[in-house]
């Protein structure tokens, strides 16, 4: 069974073709990088997968089922979760509460349970808190638990976003430029963390990244987009030797 499958996905905005006839497969525990110059359509691909946009043509399948006409919240319920390029943490909430939102659509105690605080309400709340604390510990962020999420350093905010996405127990995690704004040490740690995530949680990860060393170091497979078209696909080694990619993107990096 394949994980995610993009079949001839095309996304047009008026006369502009942001993504053209894209075919791709991501295995259930794949670790795939999506790269390309600015404006190549990478984030659009994420938005198509997560239901923000419905593709103009083609189909998106996840675990064998078509998810192309589903809403973002339904796609999340199917097991796809994401982070955002321009961090979108909940401004008024602590780190703990930001992650807690991911459990809001998944609790057994909905309105009545919460109002009357009956039916194992306290037990469930305790379980949720334990799960969040465990995730915070895994990311070494326990000390930030009660701080306002948006007051954290940039790198920590990105990691909180990753935790929030993981808390929805996804089978596929989409990371949109997870290393943006991080310093070199943070980046190295992030690389290790991303691999660890995949091994620990047994999930597939698709990540957009501009930092070549990060993508080459961590991903097992890489897709290159240019002007919305896939120009290459393969292992990091193959990509770094690919003529088209060098022309389009890596030009000066590889001598």
């Amino acid at each position: 069974m394949t994980g995610l499958e993009l079949q001839h996905v095309t996304m047009r905005f008026g006369g502009l073709t942001a993504v053209g006839d894209l075919n791709a497969v991501i295995e259930p525990t794949g670790l795939v990088g999506l790269i390309g110059p600015n404006g190549a359509g990478k984030t659009t691909v994420f938005n198509v997968i997560t239901g923000v946009y419905s593709p103009t043509q083609g189909d998106v399948k996840f675990l064998g089922k078509s998810i192309k006409s589903l809403k973002p919240n339904e796609i999340n319920q199917h097991g796809i979760s994401r982070t955002f390029q321009n961090i979108r943490l909940f401004r008024g909430m602590s780190v703990f509460d930001n992650i807690r939102v991911s459990y809001a659509p998944r609790t057994n105690n909905k309105i009545i349970g919460s109002l009357l605080r009956m039916g194992g309400f306290y037990k469930e709340e305790k379980e949720v808190a334990m799960k969040i604390d465990r995730l915070l510990e895994f990311f070494n962020l326990s000390h930030t638990r009660d701080e306002q999420a948006i007051s954290l350093p940039y790198g920590d905010q990105r990691r909180v976003e990753i935790i929030r996405a993981l808390a929805t127990s996804p089978k596929l995690l989409l990371l949109d430029e997870p290393a943006a704004g991080m310093n070199p040490t943070e980046k190295v740690n992030l690389m290790k963390l991303i691999r660890q995530l995949r091994d620990e949680f047994k999930i597939a990860i698709l990540l957009i990244e501009h930092d070549m060393s990060l993508v080459m170091g961590v991903c097992e497979q890489i897709m290159v987009l240019d002007y919305g078209v896939k120009i290459a696909e393969g292992t990091p080694k193959q990509i770094s030797e690919n003529k088209h990619v060098i022309e389009a993107y890596l030009g000066e990096v590889v001598e």
Binding site: P72, N76, F84, L89, V101, A165
Partner: peptide, 14 residues
Amino acid sequence: LAVRDDEVAAEAMG
């Protein structure tokens, strides 16, 4: 509260 703070992110979390 999530709906108030950021609808897009709230939807992405289900």
